[in-house]
């Protein structure tokens, strides 16, 4: 998936940092995104995703560190960067008084395209994002949330960018609109080799689309790799135990410490990570029996990005998981 026509489609960041007063919104981020990838940037609300996107897209200066996009330095060569990238931010940027065609044509012309061609581009993109049958007189202010999002995406594509930044492109969308955006992102990547830098709060979105994922928490990247690599870090298989109460789940968590060192609890569920889950199940049941804790359900599944996320963002980890679990991969433990 290297750059097709010799054009640089990569994104790099070195020790990138942005402070807002005392808050370190982005706190020393290093990134290396090869050209042609779909790169998923995952993190809870307020983790620093949008700030990072704003720095990479030249609308916010970093406090320190450097970054380059498409081979150009974001601070010193902002104009070059903007020619190479398309951007759809989390908050759409539409003038409510203008129609979709007017917005698309103006945006296209501002990228230096002559008017006639800009008109064709506008029509083509309206088809691409499925807004071609909307009343041409309808102003953007009267569009629904999903339509605004699609129009905003079209505005990001007017100059056939080499690199596309999408900041939470599907947040707040219904499942059908979400699926349509996913399909479009895939197609842009497949057909044009466009590098796509996508931030999201949805694990499923990252899992489905991204070649590589980075997880950001409190301004720092806490995990990075392919979805498969990340999942393997928590273990090969998960045993999920369901209890009648969170009290039971908590007691089970303590009781199972010796036999399942790697585990996370959320409410009434306890997830245990193993190399091979099935062979551990009899032991688990015995321990729970001995402790007098009744089990409501048990399932064996593959680890999901949820597991990874829970583990690296520390929310559940800090309180619920045994400290030793952090550095001992579950799989290794069981296999030995």
């Amino acid at each position: 998936m290297s750059d097709r026509d010799g054009a640089d489609r990569s994104i790099t960041a070195e020790a990138l940092r942005r402070d807002f007063g005392k808050l370190h919104a982005v706190d020393g981020v290093d990134l290396e995104v090869p050209g042609g990838q779909i790169f998923g940037f995952l993190g809870p609300n307020g983790a620093g995703k949008s700030t990072l996107v704003k720095i990479l897209t030249t609308i916010l200066n970093p406090t320190s560190g450097r970054a380059s996009v498409g081979g150009y330095d974001v601070q010193r060569q902002g104009g070059k960067v903007r020619e190479a990238i398309g951007v759809a931010l989390q908050d759409v940027g539409l003038d409510p008084l203008m129609t979709a065609r007017e917005l698309l044509m103006l945006q296209t012309e501002l990228f230096g395209t002559p008017r006639d061609e800009a008109r064709k581009t506008a029509e083509r993109l309206l088809v691409t994002v499925g807004l071609d049958d909307v009343d041409p007189k309808k102003r953007a202010g009267a569009y629904s949330g999903g339509m605004k999002r699609r129009l905003d995406l079209a505005l990001a594509l007017v100059h056939d960018p080499r690199i596309l930044f999408l900041d939470e492109p599907t947040t707040g969308l219904d499942p059908a609109s979400r699926a349509a955006i996913w399909e479009e992102v895939r197609r842009l990547n497949d057909d044009f080799g466009m590098t796509i830098f996508l931030t999201t709060q949805y694990l499923e979105e990252a899992d489905r689309l991204a070649d590589q994922i980075a997880i950001i928490n409190k301004g720092t990247i806490v995990a990075q790799g392919t979805p498969e690599e990340l999942k393997r870090q928590v273990g090969d298989e998960v045993v999920e135990l369901q209890f009648g109460s969170s009290d039971d789940a908590e007691r089970a968590q303590d009781a199972l410490a010796p036999v399942a060192p790697n585990r996370q609890r959320s409410n009434r569920e306890l997830r245990l990570y193993f190399g091979r889950a099935a062979e551990n199940v009899p032991e688990l049941v015995r321990v729970l029996d001995g402790a007098g804790i009744s089990l409501q359900g048990l399932t064996i599944e593959q680890p999901s990005l949820d597991d990874v996320f829970l583990r690296v963002t520390g929310e559940a980890l800090e309180h619920e998981v045994d400290e030793g679990a952090d550095d001992v991969p579950a799989g290794a433990e069981v296999r030995s």
Binding site: T57, T58, I59, G79, R82, E83, I85, V87, L89, D91, V92, G93, L94, D95, P96, Q107, L110, F111, G112, L155
Partner: peptide, 16 residues
């Protein structure tokens, strides 16, 4: 108005 509705940023993202 441009700043409020985000269009200002959209324009800043062009090579203008």
């Amino acid at each position: 108005k441009d700043i409020d509705n985000g269009y200002f940023t959209k324009l800043l993202l062009t090579p203008t």
